[in-house]
Design a protein around this nucleic acid. Sequence first.
DNA 1: TCATTGCATTTTGCATGCAAAATGTTAAAG
DNA 2: CTTTAACATTTTGCATGCAAAATGCAATGA
Lengths: 234, 234
Amino acid sequence: MDDQVTNQPIERQSLHDQLVARLRDLIIEGDLAPGDRVPERELCERFGVSRTPLREAFKVLAADGLIQLLPHRGATVARLTVTDIEEMFPVMGALEALAGELAADRISEEGIAEIQALHYQMVLHHKRGELAPYFRLNQQIHEKILAAAGNDTLSGIYRGLAGRIRRARYLANVSKARWAQAVAEHEAILKALVARDGPALGRILNDHLKNKCETVKESLLAESSEQVAERQRG
Amino acid sequence: MDDQVTNQPIERQSLHDQLVARLRDLIIEGDLAPGDRVPERELCERFGVSRTPLREAFKVLAADGLIQLLPHRGATVARLTVTDIEEMFPVMGALEALAGELAADRISEEGIAEIQALHYQMVLHHKRGELAPYFRLNQQIHEKILAAAGNDTLSGIYRGLAGRIRRARYLANVSKARWAQAVAEHEAILKALVARDGPALGRILNDHLKNKCETVKESLLAESSEQVAERQRG
DNA sequence: TCATTGCATTTTGCATGCAAAATGTTAAAG
DNA sequence: CTTTAACATTTTGCATGCAAAATGCAATGA
């Protein structure tokens, strides 16, 4: 039997927006792998909609960089190359540094306390070696900083980039050393935030992103070489 | 970057892509004013196309933030509020600072020479009080720096923001003082570039953008109060 | 006089139809 | 046996049709 959640015809209120959300999830969650063709007709049947709203959703996702639209050749899930990663991370670094600077000035005491709580919970997960919960809290902290910056334009652009990278699923393989380093960096982030030292927070976040970039790159390389090996076997 | 466009043998560009370009121009050039409704049927007749590709173009432009799509209420040209400006400029500042840092490392000697040429031509236009040519060269210089950074992701995001702001048409009224200050900043930009001092170039560009932000804000306020006065007269 | 309700018109969202382009398959030639 | 050429199938791009929602307008009632 088919998956009930993904196969149910969606509610009738602005179909294309819902389709955008659905497809975005499918891509980010990895149900549609990078390089895969996005089958128009199949998805129409699956969601119980016609081609028009689906194609409109394709346009939006293509503008977001999540899928690639080739003339007369349909849609494919955009591939993340190492070059893409190397381009995206400096940008994300600059944006998150800006977010940190703004947040240090604007965040409330409660906001700091919330981040502190998330941080120590995250550290706990690190000590226990629980990667998935660690990662979730990590993301929440960065989201909180972004929110505290109070700049929706900034948030929107950052989320667009982060979403494109998330489907690299780099949380699968992180070395113990890198993980520990990331936690140490988060300690510094918290410290700068508590001290409301914007410039320092900006620098630390930028460096933090640089290290994250290396992690993602390694993971991406490992994954692609894995795929090559798979193809040679099959 | 545009090489690929000019090298393509076939002009058989998909209709909606052409429409996206046309509409983008209409909006950026100001033929469609902020707040205006974008009349679907009228544009269909004007361009001789059906509603399907036009609506697809609307989606892309809405994702770019150039138009706003309200359910069952059609498209309107997105209004630029002072808040938007205040949000966008710090982001553009951070991005252009990053571009400067990267460019300082990567630009060729010819690249520097080209920017130098543009710069002195621009200064000439300033001395002659020729605002439009000055502005065009100004933009070309920033484009060159962006291109020299060699980061298409960065360029794309920056252009998206710059495009949204451009239709504020702030070149109409710039005070002599601000203009002179901008030229002075450009002198510093050139100097840092020649010295290949990335961090300094980044800082200068960030400050430069901050000042530009003030100019645009003033212009936007003047324009909107002008509109109010117009409404009171009419 | 002004607000409200009912109806006609316009606009929007989605489905469907059709022609052109791309893809896959088979058959013929070298 | 490989290459290619012709054809059938599928997929894509665009136009159009239809129903629901929104808008405009006039008539009614307070």
